[in-house]
Amino acid sequence: MNPDHISLHNKQFEPYLSAERLMAAITELAVQLNQEYANKTPLFVAVLNGSFMFAADLMKAMHIPCEISFIRVASYQGTSSTGKVQEVLGLTEDIAGRHVVVLEDIVDTGHTMKMLLDTLGAQAPASLEVATLFMKPECLQHELAIRYVGLSIPNDFIVGYGLDYDGLGRNYPDVYKAV
């Protein structure tokens, strides 16, 4: 049973999205990706740390030949984006001529995704798309064509299902929002 409220550092959070709702959104994304990438053997590039639960559950729902790799970037401090993206752990696979789908937990300002798409796009993939579990359209500061969006949400600060507040909260199966 999941708690009605959680406390992380100095903030309180209330239930927002259930694990069942998240799995329904991921299943819809998987259906789309399985259809559109049939016969293409895509490389999924999961952005750590936040996307680890999303990536794991999405991969379990993929029924086509595919690969997964991981990249780690940092752009958050506390509850807000720093606006500066630092690549921490890079991609080791050669993506030239590959169909690449970046897996992200949340796209809000778009700073991280813009940097990743520019960096990966320079490596000449056959195609480059993004699949994000959450999108905050009202926060977007870059022109990004995000093709695969699980859930569009308002500008609430959320934790759980891989998303954290200064390292805490990733372990909850549901998503909570700050009150």
Rank of each mutant, 00 (worst) to 15 (best):
4 D>P: 03
5 H>I: 07
9 H>W: 10
9 H>I: 08
10 N>E: 15
11 K>P: 02
13 F>M: 05
16 Y>I: 04
18 S>N: 13
19 A>S: 14
21 R>L: 10
22 L>E: 09
29 L>G: 00
29 L>F: 03
32 Q>G: 08
34 N>R: 05
35 Q>R: 14
35 Q>K: 14
41 T>I: 11
43 L>T: 08
45 V>M: 02
50 G>I: 02
52 F>K: 05
53 M>S: 07
54 F>P: 01
54 F>Y: 07
61 A>F: 00
62 M>C: 06
64 I>Q: 07
64 I>G: 03
65 P>G: 11
69 S>P: 03
71 I>T: 07
71 I>C: 06
71 I>R: 03
74 A>V: 11
76 Y>N: 07
78 G>I: 14
80 S>Y: 08
83 G>W: 13
84 K>I: 12
84 K>N: 13
86 Q>I: 13
89 L>S: 10
98 R>I: 03
98 R>A: 06
100 V>N: 05
100 V>I: 11
104 E>S: 08
105 D>C: 06
117 L>Q: 08
117 L>T: 07
120 L>Q: 09
121 G>H: 08
123 Q>M: 14
127 S>C: 05
127 S>T: 11
130 V>T: 15
134 F>Q: 04
135 M>Q: 12
138 E>V: 15
139 C>P: 00
142 H>M: 05
144 L>D: 08
145 A>I: 08
147 R>N: 11
148 Y>R: 02
155 N>A: 15
156 D>N: 12
159 V>N: 00
162 G>K: 00
167 G>R: 09
168 L>C: 03
168 L>D: 06
170 R>Y: 05
173 P>Y: 13
173 P>H: 12
174 D>K: 02
175 V>C: 10
176 Y>K: 07
178 A>E: 14
178 A>K: 11
